[in-house]
Design a protein around this nucleic acid. Structure first.
Length: 426
DNA sequence: TCTGGGGTCCTAGGACCC
DNA sequence: TCTGGGGTCCTAGGACCC
């Protein structure tokens, strides 16, 4: 059996941890730039606040209902996530745990006897609650896809389920599948859902009845076949080994306000490069390829906001590197080629790909590899940035004015990672 | 005024090789 | 007159996830 452990309304729960007076107040957390709503407490959901709603369009209704909004505080969420995952490790070996996202992890329970499953899962849920203060929901079933379905249903009726649901018999599995729309299945997005609807396949149970050959032709080849197998209880997606180093690393952001000035955009892009390069160094990778993109501001008076497509360019780096200045230069060159005077831009981004381990840097006959001194320097910069305020040491090209910087007007404190921002009790 | 960011995997089709 | 076919690698784009 597999379990999925999912933190309830994770970002909202983190915000509430240090503000107990908000325990029953509806709360939402906003995306970068205070753009839209990306996490909602149960109370906010009940009041009809939708996921991904634009904040500036929701302000009145939030105010009306007394809903409290926060800018996203990734320092806090990242640290709380780590604590939740570490708590799970106190009950299960590392090899049984797959951290799937900041607020979710799969656990392989195949070593737990059937008659102990319920007690084990209950213990896990309570321990996480006690040790971290974060409420979680747990779904258990024979495959990952079924466990995700169990989890959804557990969350749907928290009073009854106590945030836990075990699908440990075929009867329970089928009942759950009949209550699940295809669009709610893990792995079925908008496109597949539309397609399935045309074939009159409405519920997960319906989908399970479809022939695998049909799925191969209609639902993206092996992806569709796997999906049906998983619904049938045949495991096709295992528990992945941990911490696979990333295959690409990026930093992309909307500007605080639209930009037309090349110099300001250069500052922003230089900043994104140094952010992404930090990520590279953290996982000891070096990039062989870099892509820069910009997005033109979408002026539409229509009902649905549809952003423009990115305009991008990439370059193969003469030598794989993770040294910020070596990456800033080609990035700026790409940007200069992309930039058109007079155009209003709303977003830009940098993507590093074709990553290789930093230790085995491929030497290029014509270009000297990053010198040891440069690496030493980058290391120091990272350490200072980590232990001091973010970005205390930054590169001159990333600017000092930073009028392009994102908005975070409702930011809470970094209670768990900064001594100076510790919660005080008077 | 103001609409997130960061990833993964798979496939089709072109390039290239023998 | 007649001008192959099969395999592999790479890439862009599409689908999905949280």
């Amino acid at each position: 059996m597999k379990a999925i452990v999912d933190c309830n309304n994770f970002y909202c729960s983190c915000e509430r941890l240090f503000k107990p007076h908000l325990k029953t107040t509806p709360v939402v957390v906003l995306s970068n730039n205070d753009g839209c709503i990306i996490s909602r407490s149960d109370e906010a959901k009940k009041l009809g606040i939708k996921m991904a709603q634009a904040y500036f369009l929701s302000k009145t209704s939030l105010k009306q209902h007394g809903i409290v909004a926060f800018s996203s505080n990734y320092n806090l969420y990242g640290d709380m996530s780590k604590r939740v995952m570490e708590t799970m490790q106190s009950m299960f070996p590392l090899s049984c745990i797959e951290v799937y996202s900041v607020d979710e992890a799969f656990v392989d329970l195949s070593h737990v006897p059937a008659n102990e499953l319920h007690a084990t899962v209950k213990e896990l849920k309570e321990r996480i609650g006690q040790w971290t203060g974060i409420p979680v929901s747990i779904g258990v079933a024979p495959t990952k896809t079924l466990a995700k379905i169990a989890n959804r249903l557990a969350k749907e009726n928290k009073e009854k389920s106590h945030c836990m649901l075990l699908l440990d018999t075929p009867g329970k599995v089928n009942a759950a599948l009949k209550r699940t729309l295809v669009s709610e299945i893990w792995g079925v997005g908008k496109q597949f859902a539309t397609k399935l609807d045309k074939f009159e396949v409405k519920t997960a149970f319906d989908l399970k009845q479809m022939p695998e050959e049909w799925a191969r032709q209609q639902l993206g080849g092996v992806v569709g076949v796997r999906l049906i197998k998983e619904l049938k209880g045949i495991q096709t997606i295992g528990i992945d080994e941990q911490l696979a180093t990333k295959k690409m690393v990026s930093c992309t952001r909307r500007f605080g306000h639209p930009l037309t000035d090349l110099n300001q955009m250069k500052e922003a892009v230089a900043m994104y490069v140094s952010r992404a390069a930090e990520k590279l160094r953290r996982q000891q990778s070096a990039a062989q390829q870099m892509t820069v993109f910009v997005i033109e501001k979408a002026f539409d008076k229509g009902e649905v906001y549809t952003p423009n497509e990115p305009i991008k360019r990439d370059v193969v780096l003469p030598v794989a590197t993770s040294v910020t200045p070596e990456l800033i230069k080609p990035a700026i060159e790409l940007l200069e080629k992309l930039y058109t005077p007079g155009i209003v831009y709303e977003k830009a981004g940098v993507i590093f790909s074709k990553l290789i381990p930093d230790g085995s840097l491929q030497a290029n006959f014509f270009v000297a590899a990053s010198s040891a001194e440069q690496k030493f320097l980058m290391n120091k910069v990272d350490n200072i940035n980590f232990s001091m305020r973010n970005e205390m040491v930054k590169f001159a090209s990333s600017g000092v004015e930073r009028s392009w910087k994102m908005k975070q007007e409702l930011l809470s404190k970094r209670y768990t990672t900064r001594w100076s921002e510790l919660r005080e009790i008077n």
